[in-house]
C-alpha cells in the first residue's frame, strides 16, 4: 500500500515532506499551545498566503519572479508579520490576543487586493489554500528540509530556555534566560514552520496540524517531554495514514490528514474522559 510512494519521485517527495512536517508542526505546536499562542498560527498562515499571492502577482509582471518559488515570499511575509505581532503584543500588554485579529484581517485584506489585481492564478492559489502534496517540487522539498533542520536544532539547543520561559517568565528572567532573544526567535520559527507545513495541508489547515496532535498529547502525557513524544507520534500517524488513504481513496490529502488527527483526538478524549486538563 505504502510502497507505491517510493516508486514515483513526486510521491516520494510528498511522503518525505509529509514526514518532516508531521514531526515539525506538532513539535513546535507544543510550545505554541502552552504559551497560549495557537491562534497566532492561524494569523500567520493567512499572511503567508498574502506573500504567495504577492509573489505570483510579481511573477506575472516581472520575469525575475517567475522562477522564484512563491513559498520564499510567503515565508518572508510570515516572518515580517510575526515580528509585527510581537510588537503589537507588547503594545497591548493586557490584550495580547488583539494582535491576532489585527494581523489576520490585515493579511487577508492585502491578500485579496493582490488576488484581485491579477485574477487568473486561482488554480495555483487553490493548491496553497488546501495543500497539494503531490505537486511538491524538489525546491519545496529542499526548503522544507532546511527549515526542519534549523527549527529542530534551535528547539533542542534552547529547550531549557523555551521551557522555563513558557512556564514561568518572571523566574526564568531572574535565572538569566534570554527572554527577548528567545521570544523573537520563537515567533520567527513559527512563521517558518507555517510556510513549511502549508505545502502539505494548506493554509486553512496549517494550525490544525500544530495544535490537534498536541491537544491529544496533553490528555495522555505525564510531563513536558512526554507531551512532545505523543504529539509527534500523533502528528506522524496523521500525516502518513492521511497521505496513503487519500492517495488510494482519491481524497484531498490535507483534509484527510487533518481528519485523521481529529479522529485521534476523539479517541484520546474518549479514553481519558472525566479527566481535566
Amino acid at each position: 500500500m505504502i510502497s507505491v510512494f517510493f516508486q514515483y519521485d513526486f510521491l516520494m517527495y510528498a511522503m518525505f515532506t509529509g514526514i518532516m512536517v508531521g514531526f515539525l508542526a506538532p513539535f513546535l505546536g507544543v510550545f505554541l499551545v502552552v504559551r497560549r499562542m495557537s491562534l497566532i498560527a492561524d494569523a500567520l498562515s493567512h499572511v503567508t498566503l498574502t506573500g504567495i499571492a504577492f509573489s505570483l502577482l510579481l511573477g506575472r509582471h516581472f520575469s525575475l519572479f517567475q522562477g522564484l518559488n512563491p513559498l520564499y515570499l510567503g515565508a518572508g511575509f510570515s516572518v515580517g508579520a510575526s515580528l509585527l505581532i510581537e510588537r503589537l503584543r507588547n503594545v497591548y500588554t493586557y490584550y495580547k490576543e488583539l494582535a491576532i485579529p489585527i494581523i489576520l484581517s490585515a493579511g487577508i485584506g492585502l491578500g485579496v487586493v493582490f488576488i484581485s489585481l491579477a485574477d487568473g492564478f486561482t488554480n495555483d492559489l487553490f493548491s496553497y489554500l488546501f495543500g497539494s502534496v503531490v505537486t511538491i517540487t524538489q525546491s519545496d522539498f529542499r526548503l522544507i528540509a532546511a527549515i526542519t533542520l534549523f527549527v529542530s536544532g534551535f528547539i533542542i539547543l534552547f529547550y531549557k530556555e523555551l521551557f522555563f520561559l513558557s512556564f514561568d517568565e518572571e523566574q526564568a528572567i531572574i535565572s538569566g534566560m534570554p527572554k527577548r532573544f528567545i521570544q523573537w526567535m520563537f515567533i520567527i520559527i513559527v512563521a517558518l514552520v507555517i510556510a513549511a507545513s502549508m505545502r502539505v495541508v494548506g493554509i486553512l489547515l496549517v494550525s490544525s496540524l500544530m495544535t490537534i496532535p498536541v491537544a491529544s498529547a496533553m490528555r495522555l502525557a505525564k510531563g513536558f517531554k512526554q507531551t512532545f513524544i505523543y504529539a509527534v507520534i500523533f502528528g506522524e500517524i496523521s500525516v502518513i495514514v492521511g497521505l496513503v488513504a487519500s492517495f488510494h481513496l482519491n481524497l484531498a490529502p490535507g483534509g484527510t490528514i487533518v481528519m485523521i488527527a481529529v479522529l485521534i483526538l476523539l479517541i484520546t478524549l474518549f479514553f481519558t474522559r472525566g479527566r481535566h486538563t
Partner: peptide, 29 residues
Amino acid sequence: SQKANSFNSGFPATVFEVVSMGLYGKIGL
C-alpha cells in the same frame, strides 16, 4: 514569588521538570 502557584495550572510539566528549572541558570546555554 508570591504568584508562584498562579502559573498556568494545565501546563504539562512534572514535578521533576519544574524543580530542574531551578538549575537551568547554573547549567548555562
